[in-house]
Design a protein around this nucleic acid. Structure first.
Lengths: 255, 255
DNA sequence: GAGCGACTTCTACAATTATGGAATTGAATA
DNA sequence: TATTCAATTCCATAATTGTAGAAGTCGCTC
């Protein structure tokens, strides 16, 4: 007796078989054809195709042609956007750091926290507390606020309400309403600056990196002693903003 | 008693929930987080995530971050390539037709057949037999041969063997080996020309439209009386080839 | 050092789902 | 007219799969 029970294949694998076939052929196929080419039972494919059509994973083209669906494009572009952002951002981060001789960071959001995901250290002795991987609440930093800038007021307020924590130095703003307003203003200005009150403290000058839809994917920021930040303020702000723009345009999709 | 049995959700829907969440957040999430956010049982999500990771629909980023997978990019780009090709090709088809005052067609392959998927008629009286939607065997036309040009010899030969038919006029080449060789040569020259033997007959001057990977997605061709084809041969071949290139570069991806 | 919360893995069970098979349509061929 | 064959739909059935629930880590904080 032949191995008749070993033929059942899960929905995911069947779906992928279909998507792969269409991707290879680069042409729409009929449902029937898909069944033949995959070797799957026709009934299986018909039901599955219908389900996938419903969910825009597939689309109809012409009379009975089945083709990949628009949903796949969304996923694909999102995947690529992130890849690209980080490759491009890293390059620009290094360039900027070398140019200015300052430490530059790339930060991204992770729920209510901000994570340092890239860093180019300056040559000098200046030590920054935050290393790659450091996670701090969004309300502690200029970058953190920018990362919420594109969200609608309600969402931003909610996230700040849930995640704002007093910082160790007690300097960080913790009031959700004020944070939310500040975040919006800074995001619109494409610039957030944080000076500590005490001398010799760390300052941070940050600009948002946005995708086509305007969402803030990451930030690029210069981290340096407050004194230097004050003395070269105009140049530094100009430079981070330029770098952010450079990264964004390097990703520019066709209109 | 609560509605406890109505909670089961198919693998496809659960998968899409995951992909949607990641797409919205534009940030990696942990499997646990995905479970919370979707409201799905943790065990379900863990198993599903593992399966999707295996199949490159998801990828790991960092310690326990889950992100969209590269496979999605393949699908997405393939989807878009086709969209773009046809939008762009249609535009160029009209421009070329107007420019030359001749009928221009866009053709694509559908298994062993060629389908006319777009057409810009010339102003004059000249009548072409083939209208949009017309399907003929690949071996009948110059476009048909080009559409197989990028395939490896074996595949091309197989398709011709399976699908070649004598044409009504009996003029079409039907020998798979000769067809296959001709197709390759024409594809490499990026030009295929078909003149009928009899006077007043239809001639066709076609060029391939390829994607980044070199696959021939479609062809653009001028369809006109043989006499005109002969008298303006150089200009016409130059123009179709230029149009094909224009379409291709209009699609030019970065990198 | 106990307790908590985020995170992960495991098992057993019910039933949803993929499957085989057969019936139906429509167009093309003989 | 009969006969293919592509294409689609329907049904009953077995068993794969999603689920609940609980147990097990690891890092915290109290």
């Amino acid at each position: 007796m032949t191995d008749k029970t070993r033929t059942r294949v899960g929905a995911i694998d069947r779906s992928l078989q279909i998507l792969d076939l269409l991707t290879e052929r680069r042409q729409p196929m009929t449902a029937y054809d898909l069944a033949r080419s995959t070797g799957a039972p026709v009934s299986t494919i018909y039901k599955l195709v219908e389900e996938l059509l419903d969910r825009s994973m597939l689309s109809r083209i012409g009379e009975n042609g089945i083709w990949l669906g628009p949903r796949l494009m969304r996923y694909g572009l999102t995947y690529r956007a992130r890849m690209d952002v980080f490759a491009e951002a890293r390059r620009e981060m290094n360039r900027l750091s070398e140019n200015l001789g300052e430490t530059v960071q790339i930060c991204a959001r992770d729920e209510g926290m901000m994570t340092v995901i890239g860093m180019a250290r300056a040559g000098g002795h200046f030590n920054v507390a935050s290393d790659v991987g450091t996670r701090v609440p969004l309300n502690w930093t200029a970058s953190g606020r920018l990362l919420l800038g594109h969200l609608d007021d309600e969402t931003r307020l909610r996230i700040f309400t849930e995640s704002a924590r007093p910082s160790e130095t007690g300097q960080a703003e913790t009031d959700p309403a004020r944070l939310s307003r500040l975040a919006r203003e800074e995001f619109e200005a494409r610039l957030a600056v944080q000076m500590s009150a005490s001398e010799f403290a760390v300052a941070c000058i940050a600009a948002p990196i946005c995708d086509d839809s305007g969402a803030c994917l990451a930030t690029i920021s210069i981290v340096l002693p407050e004194t230097r930040a004050r003395s070269a303020y105009d140049e530094l702000t100009r430079e981070v903003q330029n770098s952010a723009r450079t990264i964004e345009t390097a990703l520019g999709r066709r209109g």
